[in-house]
C-alpha cells in the first residue's frame, strides 16, 4: 500500500471526483433500500410481525389470505385441531372506511378481527387492552390522523368502536390496522398457528413469506425497488471498473518501470485492489452520513426506514461489486512487460 496511498494523495482531484460519484450512487442505494424497507413495513408490518409461524387458508385462495373465506362454524374444530387457543387464532381482515367521532373526514383502516385473548393480539404500547366487545386496539399511526385514546371510530352505518389502546408497527396494505374482537363475524380468512400446523388436506398451510407476497401490490412494489437497487450496484461496478481501467492504462509506463525495478505483479495488484476498497469504504461512510441527513428531512409519515444493520448488506455488496469491477484492470497490470521501461527494446 506504500504506492497506493501516496498515489491517492497525489492525484487527489481525480479520486475525489470518482469518490463523489460513488457517494451519490451509494446514497441512492441506501435511500431506495430505506424506501423499500419502509414501504414493506407500511404495506405488511402487521403480517411480518404476526405472532404466528404459519397460516392455514382455503386451498382455492392460492396463497392469498384475502381470497380465503372460511365459515365461522369451522372455527372451534380448526382451533382444536391445532391444540387450542394457546396455539392458534383465527384472523379476518377487512379494509374499511372510518370516521372519527362523527367528523366528516374519512380514513382508511384495516380491521383485523381475532380472538380477544388469542395469540394474535399485539402488545399495548399506550393506553389499555380492550375489555368490551366494542373496544379496540389501534395502530399508533392513526394518531397522525388525529385519533386519541377514547375516540369513537364509526364504521358502516351502525357499528362504532372505542379506541382504548395503541400498538406499534401494525400496518397492512398501507393503512393502519385496528384489532377488533371477532365475536360476531360470519366468516374468517385464516387460522394463524404457532409451531407446526396440522391440516387434513382440505386446507393449505402457507408461511408468512407466502402470505406477504399475497398482499395486493406487495411483491410488485418490492420487485421494482429491488430492480433499481440491482441496477445501481451494476452501475457502481461499471463506473469503478472503467475508471480504474483507464487509470491503469495511463500508468502503463510507470508500472513497467516499477516492474523493471523489481516490483512483482502481485504487489501492484494488491495496491490497486487496496485503492478500490479504500475508495469504496470512504465513499460508503460518507454516503451513510448523507443518507441519514436526507432521511431526517423526509416528512414523518413517509414510509422510510433506515437502520445501520439494514445498510450493512448493501454496503458489503457495493464493496464486493467494486472489487469485481477492478478485476478487469488486473489483466492489464499482469501483462505489462518490464521491458517497456527500456526505450526501443520492445518489439
Amino acid at each position: 500500500m506504500f504506492l497506493a496511498i501516496r498515489e491517492l494523495l497525489f492525484a487527489k482531484t481525480k479520486y475525489i471526483l470518482i469518490g463523489l460519484i460513488m457517494v451519490l450512487t451509494a446514497s441512492l442505494i441506501f435511500i431506495i433500500s430505506g424506501l423499500a424497507q419502509g414501504l414493506s413495513s407500511d404495506n405488511a408490518s402487521a403480517i411480518q410481525d404476526l405472532q404466528a409461524d404459519a397460516l392455514i387458508i382455503e386451498e382455492e385462495a392460492e396463497g392469498e389470505i384475502g381470497n380465503s373465506f372460511i365459515p365461522a362454524d369451522e372455527r372451534e374444530k380448526m382451533i382444536e385441531a391445532q391444540g387450542g387457543n394457546n396455539n392458534a387464532s383465527t384472523l379476518a381482515i377487512r379494509m374499511m372506511n372510518t370516521t372519527i367521532n362523527d367528523a366528516d373526514q374519512q380514513i382508511d383502516i384495516a380491521l383485523f378481527a381475532t380472538e380477544r385473548n388469542g395469540i394474535l393480539m399485539p402488545d399495548v404500547a399506550e393506553g389499555m387492552f380492550p375489555q368490551k366487545a366494542d373496544e379496540v386496539l389501534a395502530d399508533a399511526t392513526l394518531k397522525q390522523e388525529g385519533v386519541r385514546l377514547g375516540d369513537q371510530l364509526q364504521v358502516e352505518e351502525n357499528t362504532s368502536y372505542t379506541v382504548t389502546g395503541f400498538t406499534a408497527d401494525q400496518r397492512y396494505s398501507h393503512t393502519p390496522v385496528v384489532f377488533i374482537s371477532n365475536d360476531e363475524l360470519e366468516q374468517f380468512n385464516a387460522v394463524a398457528v404457532q409451531g407446526e400446523a396440522n391440516t387434513d388436506g382440505s386446507y393449505e398451510v402457507i408461511t408468512k413469506e407466502t402470505a406477504l407476497n399475497g398482499i395486493p401490490s406487495y411483491s410488485q412494489e418490492q420487485a421494482s425497488l429491488n430492480m433499481m437497487i440491482i441496477f445501481l450496484y451494476v452501475i457502481a461496478a461499471f463506473v469503478l471498473a472503467v475508471f480504474f481501467y483507464v487509470m491503469t492504462l495511463q500508468k502503463r509506463e510507470q508500472f513497467g518501470v516499477l516492474k523493471a525495478l523489481g516490483a512483482k505483479s502481485m504487489y501492484l495488484i494488491r495496491g490497486l485492489i487496496g485503492q478500490v476498497i479504500l475508495l469504496s469504504l470512504i465513499s460508503i461512510s460518507i454516503a451513510v452520513v448523507v443518507t441519514f441527513g436526507i432521511g431526517a428531512l423526509f416528512p414523518a409519515d413517509m414510509p422510510f426506514t433506515l437502520e445501520l444493520e439494514t445498510m450493512l448488506q448493501p454496503a458489503i455488496i457495493i464493496i464486493v461489486v467494486s472489487t469485481i469491477g477492478a478485476i478487469v484492470s488486473l489483466y492489464q497490470v499482469i501483462q505489462i512487460d518490464p521491458i517497456e521501461a527500456i526505450e526501443g527494446a520492445a518489439y
Binding site: L3, R6, E7, A11, Q254, L258, A260, L261, A341, E343
Partner: peptide, 12 residues
Amino acid sequence: FVFQAAHLVPYL
C-alpha cells in the same frame, strides 16, 4: 537501473 528520462514515479 538508470532509465532514459529518469522514469521516476510521478507521485512519489
